[in-house]
Design a protein around this nucleic acid. Sequence first.
DNA 1: CTGAAAGCGCTTACAG
DNA 2: CTGAAAGCGCTTACAG
Lengths: 334, 334
Amino acid sequence: MTIKDIAKLSGYGIGTVSRVINKQPGVSEKAREKILKIIEESNFEPNGNARKLKRCGGNTVTIIMKGRHNSFFMEILDRITLLLSELDEVVSCQIIDEDGDEVAEALKFVRDKTSKAIIFLGANLALFDERMNELEIPCVVATTSARELAFDNVSSVCVDDEAATMELVQYLTGYGHKDIVVMGGEISDKQISFSRYLGCKKGFEKSGLEFDPDKNYMACRYSYEAGYETTKKLLEKNIHVTAIVGLSDTIAVGAIRAIEDAGKKVPDDISVVGFDGTVISRFYTPRITSMGQDINSIAKRSVELLMKHIHYTLGCEHDYAPHNLIEGESVRRV
Amino acid sequence: MTIKDIAKLSGYGIGTVSRVINKQPGVSEKAREKILKIIEESNFEPNGNARKLKRCGGNTVTIIMKGRHNSFFMEILDRITLLLSELDEVVSCQIIDEDGDEVAEALKFVRDKTSKAIIFLGANLALFDERMNELEIPCVVATTSARELAFDNVSSVCVDDEAATMELVQYLTGYGHKDIVVMGGEISDKQISFSRYLGCKKGFEKSGLEFDPDKNYMACRYSYEAGYETTKKLLEKNIHVTAIVGLSDTIAVGAIRAIEDAGKKVPDDISVVGFDGTVISRFYTPRITSMGQDINSIAKRSVELLMKHIHYTLGCEHDYAPHNLIEGESVRRV
DNA sequence: CTGAAAGCGCTTACAG
DNA sequence: CTGAAAGCGCTTACAG
């Protein structure tokens, strides 16, 4: 069933049928009704590839999410999808590998003329290279700042990772903690982990504590398993630690499990804090004190910036979403 | 940059260029090399829409995952993606809403000639209606049995939910529990929740206990929040309960949190078991005893069946993956 | 308001 | 081995 068949069945030409399908003006009410009826009856769906071959741009907002083990992203994805649906946008969510190439993926959708805009949920800025010249549609990077990229079609929304981490450390020092170990991602420039690392350092220093990377920072993937193993290793060293900062809730969960397995208690023996403020932090036993990223704000601003781009083609913006500490039961005063 | 430009640059015709792009035989080595070089240099990518307009079928395996809050699915997705990549399959993962229409989504990819096969991760069999006639490519439903559907292109892999749930209940009765409340999804025919409900009933009866749906079963969405609220409601009733069965790990987590918030302990006051065997069950405090679905098997068999379909167009199969109880620390003898 | 025609960028018989 | 041409199913000026 093609547009040609519909034309024949309706007695009109394919041009008129096309106009009806695309809700264009310049068709008599009579023709529109008749054609619509036939389309309905025959269950006709226009061939997307043929349309896209002709059309200049796509119509869907594509969300590219990085990583399959990230409930934080999932929570944001959920909000963003809802907001976009409310705006009657066609949205499509793609998951790619944590180490995948989101720009390559985005390029596909642009070449395909599928997407009219893209939201990156998580991003490795190092991948945003000269290929971006081809990616001419509005983009928003959520949870990572794209400010230093300075592409005029790429906005971004994220929390101030450095400030948030600093406050998290200061929260602990405020409770008298001095022997603190931070567990977070590998430090490489342009990445979130680096901002958080800097924030930690500042937090130590503002509290009058010395920050020794070798003693106070341990690299750790953002997962339960890694948090567990890293903490286990730490405990085996048998040095004096009163608090652990997990730079994700998953790391914090792993840390607590490892501490309990070592026969110690949280927070009685060791305090633990997390980062992200995901649902599990509120349902874990003990509830985990966590630096919450404001998921609603991140989602809302991401969508707002995208829509602004789409409708007014304004320049890009880089926004901070609020962070706020969610107190649980995993910290005690020492 | 189109195939025409490449033809002009290389001095060959577009037919020859097309053959080179598609790795077809019947091109001289000299022509192939020259054309390949020019394609390389000019960074040419053939237009996907034009190709798909002509081609008869797609080349990618599409995975349609239902729901954004399902770490169980995520763990399977992870495995499946890995296995397919190892087979050099092009794979694409789409997330749709928990209440979304996976068949409509699948149809899009088939009409687009994007997909050559589809894996449904989670499915509402009620949606698999006459539209399936149009979905002529190989499909596998993972985690739900599609046996009763009897479409000859739809295989499925899942655990035996009824048996697994029965064993889970019997595990508890084996530890002396008699006052057991099960929390699981709404019971509607053809759905997983119904099989699990039946399994529970059997488990009670085989243990010589009466099963009263009003007393022993509470409908509950598969989430932390719902598990929490449902358990809270249960505890407020002040009836004697020694064990709670959460038909997902998320429900079990919510239940434990609610029990602790009521000033009771798990397992000292109330035992709790979960279902799925997801990572969180092994990292929660206490570790949650859970009926594990064999994620590796589900992923492996799903991919195997799909490949069989693709390569040999054999009839479909419906397989059970093993389930096995993973003992944690959330159950005590009464 | 309507239709005939060109063209989007490919693939694929067909003829050489 | 190679090229010219038809055609995939649409959209969009253009002419009426």
